[in-house]
């Protein structure tokens, strides 16, 4: 499983990276813009991420914009809803509503912070990535 963690807070980033590295390659990005750049490059070389964990509130480019941009890249690359990467939005409890409203179409799941790795693993299993 190849994962991209997008998170501006280093503590949370570290947590997700430590955990997800157990299941494969895990790259990180500090904001939405970095994430989009990384995705663009990796797609050019024909490499696709299986999973993206994306924070919502980030400087430079927030999770919502970044997600839309990544989905756009995927559409251009001819990905279908089956072959595109799975996206888990990570969010504070107060943003759950936002997730439902803004991300329903684009993301596949959400997790509330603080991240519970058990729940994350469950979700990854649902995606059949492990």
């Amino acid at each position: 499983m190849k994962t991209l963690v997008v998170e501006d807070d280093s503590t949370n980033r570290l947590l997700l990276q430590s955990f997800l590295s157990k299941y494969g390659i895990c790259h990180v990005a500090k904001n939405g813009k970095e994430a989009v750049d990384i995705c663009r490059k990796s797609m050019k070389s024909g490499e696709y991420y299986d999973l993206v964990c994306m924070d919502i509130l980030m400087p430079k480019m927030d999770g919502k914009e970044a997600l839309a941009a990544i989905r756009g890249l995927e559409d251009n690359a001819g990905c279908t809803s089956d072959t595109r990467c799975k996206v888990i939005m990570t969010t504070g409890v107060t943003d759950v509503k936002t997730v439902f409203e803004s991300f329903n179409e684009c993301c596949d799941a959400y997790l509330t912070k603080p991240i519970d790795t058990g729940k994350l693993l469950e979700q990854i299993k649902v995606f059949r990535l492990v």
């Binding site: 503590t11 570290l14 947590l15 430590s18 955990f19 519970d116 790795t117 058990g118």
Partner: peptide, 21 residues
């Protein structure tokens, strides 16, 4: 630990990062 499925290594790593940060 409940949230990390009892993984103390991750817990220590994350706390370490937090203390620096």
């Amino acid at each position: 630990l409940n949230r990390l499925m009892g993984d103390k290594d991750i817990a220590r790593a994350v706390i370490g990062g937090f203390l620096e940060d």
